[in-house]
Design a protein around this nucleic acid. Structure first.
Length: 584
DNA sequence: GCCGTTTTCGGCCCGACTGTTTTCAGTCG
């Protein structure tokens, strides 16, 4: 059992304890243990064997005697006594109910005890039949919101976030590559195109073992991979299976000679491919997953590489992120494809947290980690006081923290520049929750919208418009409230906000965290068309989250952005500061 | 359930908003 699975089981146990009404601190300790397990770099299964040093598990902060025993049970048997006991009392499907808006542990427990409702279908039926109205605090408004939430949940739950899909793709690729004679495995499909979520995983494998006459044994290898839950189909050169989490995986084993054509074909998108094939026909050729052929004599024009195929159709190579049939073919024909922004273009990351509020590491640790990742400047932007659960700072603490940031910045001796800053909460009327006197002393003031203020569109829009009027605000964070696969974003008039932000010179932030890419590619195109400054930040709460920049860049590329469109490509801290809204 | 210490138990992230209440419980960040 790997760390991710261990963490998931511990976290689920915490949720079951919540439904059971257990002690809040006991629940929290299970959640903390799950987090700690997930963050470990060594596989705990190796530390949880009878032969291993029993102290090894206890050395992890958040794991004590009881939790270590739980982990040993999980590794040995796949479950543990407490979990089994709770599953006798409740149903595992009730965990899914917790993901619906407005459904917390108390409400889940209530519908179970009152109506024996234990899954989404039953809850929906009960809501539609009006059975919920009989229960306390569940009137008409609640029911309407719930049914909407169920609908949204169904729309999303069959898709997976791209970073999770990428992790699985990586894991499966390694297992496939273990077979002698397979020397390359490439993800195709929407994963390669950089969509935010993927429905299934397409993996293309090639190498000597994938030649038609010998491919059977390689197919056998793939069809018997240990992480397969259900084998769905198995053909001559194709294997389809699902994982335990229901993610469907298609693996195709292809000869080297047609690998480029296959990669092109399976990367899509469908619309891009249709347009590309039409172009081939106009030129007396035909394009398939095997090759680009000349029609008159079936001669292979190109098949080994994508570049060769595009070039043979008089096109520049089109990056996978642009293959949506949104003008990329015309641009490729006219040699006007943009030089898309790359990770190497990003020199700064100006939104991150430290242990002063809800981050895990110190100012210095974040700075050192940023240096390792090639950043030239960062900003420490911890939370303001209104976000109480994060231990948000009041004016006094914000200023003291900024003084420490300046101190550490001095000590870095130019290896990196650290800006002072704050992620400042927007209150109910759109005012900042710290004073202007405080904000005036900070380099980077980020105004942060929170989805807990889920208000009608006019109210949300007015609130944010008022917030960015504050002359010290330089960046607007979470403009859409999007949380991928979790909650509906709040309703807000982005066009109005972007237009005003553009006039004021306030930059809009694209959050690079894979769970929360605030701006989609189409949002970003809108921002660009209105002349907005765009900044991409990780919002890191731990050093490893600084790596999220590589997720964030993908949506920028899909929006056709170049380094000129994004302000944290500025090469020096001075240039970056100059690109921001001037302070009064 | 973990941690730290005051070695045996008390502290552990808090405040605002919502729907429904008519004084608050539950959810959320």
């Amino acid at each position: 059992m790997d760390n991710i699975s261990l963490a998931r089981l511990l976290d689920e146990t915490a949720s079951l304890l919540e439904i059971d009404g257990a002690d809040i601190f006991r629940i929290r300790s299970y959640r903390r243990a799950a987090e700690a397990v997930e963050q470990q770099t060594t596989q705990l299964a190796t530390l949880a064997t009878p032969e291993a040093d029993p102290k090894a598990l206890l050395a992890i902060a958040g794991i004590g005697k009881a939790m270590a025993a739980n982990i040993r049970d999980l590794v040995a048997t796949g479950s543990m006594p407490l979990r089994e006991e709770l599953l006798q009392k409740y149903r595992p499907t009730m965990l899914e109910l917790l993901r619906l808006p407005g459904m917390g542990p108390k409400t889940v427990a209530l519908v179970w005890s009152a109506l024996q409702v234990s899954n989404i279908d039953e809850l929906e039926a009960a809501a539609k039949a009006g059975h919920l109205a009989a229960l306390p605090r569940m009137g008409e408004k609640f029911t309407v919101k719930l049914l909407k939430g169920i609908e949204d949940h169904r729309k999303n739950s069959s898709r997976f976030r791209i970073d999770q899909a990428r992790d699985y793709a990586e894991k499966i690729s390694q297992l496939i590559l273990a077979f002698p004679g397979i020397d390359q495995v490439t993800p195709a499909g929407s994963l390669r195109r950089g969509r935010e979520t993927v429905g299934d995983l397409d993996l293309l494998a090639t190498g000597p073992a994938c030649e038609p006459d010998v491919v059977a044994s390689a197919v056998e290898h793939v069809a018997t991979l240990p992480l397969i839950d259900k084998l769905m189909a198995r053909g001559q050169n194709k294997v389809t299976f699902t994982l335990r989490n229901n993610l469907q995986v298609d693996v195709r084993l292809l000869p080297r000679s047609s690998y480029g054509a296959a990669l092109q074909y399976f990367t899509g998108s469908k619309h891009h491919n249709v347009a590309l094939r039409q172009r081939a026909i106009k030129r007396g050729m035909t394009l398939s997953e095997y090759a680009l052929l000349r029609l008159e004599d079936n001669k292979i024009i190109a098949s080994e590489s994508e570049e060769a195929i595009y070039n043979a159709l008089d096109l520049d190579f089109i990056p996978p992120e642009l293959r949506e049939n949104c003008g990329e073919l015309e641009a490729a024909a006219n040699h006007t494809l943009p030089q898309l922004i790359t990770l190497a273009d990003l020199h700064g990351d100006v939104h991150m947290h430290t242990s002063e509020t809800d981050g895990t590491y110190t100012i210095r640790e974040m700075a050192e980690a940023a240096i390792l990742r090639g950043r030239r400047y960062i900003a420490i932007t911890d939370h303001s006081k209104n976000l109480a659960m994060t231990n948000g700072m009041n004016d006094e603490r914000a200023l003291a923290h900024a003084a420490r940031v300046r101190q550490v910045n001095q000590e870095m001796e130019g290896r990196i520049h650290i800006f002072t800053g704050i992620e400042c909460d927007i209150l109910g009327e759109g005012e900042m929750d710290l004073t202007d006197e405080t904000l005036a002393q900070l380099d980077i003031v980020i105004a942060s919208v929170h989805s807990k203020f889920d208000q009608p569109i006019e109210v949300m829009t007015a609130r944010v418009l008022r917030a960015i009027e504050n002359p010290y605000v330089r960046i607007l964070a979470h403009p859409t409230g999007r949380k991928l696969l979790r909650r509906d974003p709040y309703k807000i008039d982005l066009e109005q906000i972007f237009r005003r932000a553009s006039e004021l010179g306030v930059a809009v932030e694209h959050n690079a965290a894979p769970a929360r890419t605030d701006l989609s590619d189409s949002h970003m195109r809108l921002a660009k068309s209105l002349g907005c400054k765009i900044v991409v930040n990780t919002d890191a709460h731990a050093t490893d989250e600084l790596d999220h920049m590589q997720h964030g860049i993908v949506q920028l590329r899909r929006a056709w952005l170049t380094s000129a469109d994004v302000i944290n490509t500025a090469p020096t801290p001075e240039d970056f500061l100059a690109s921001l809204r001037p302070r009064p």
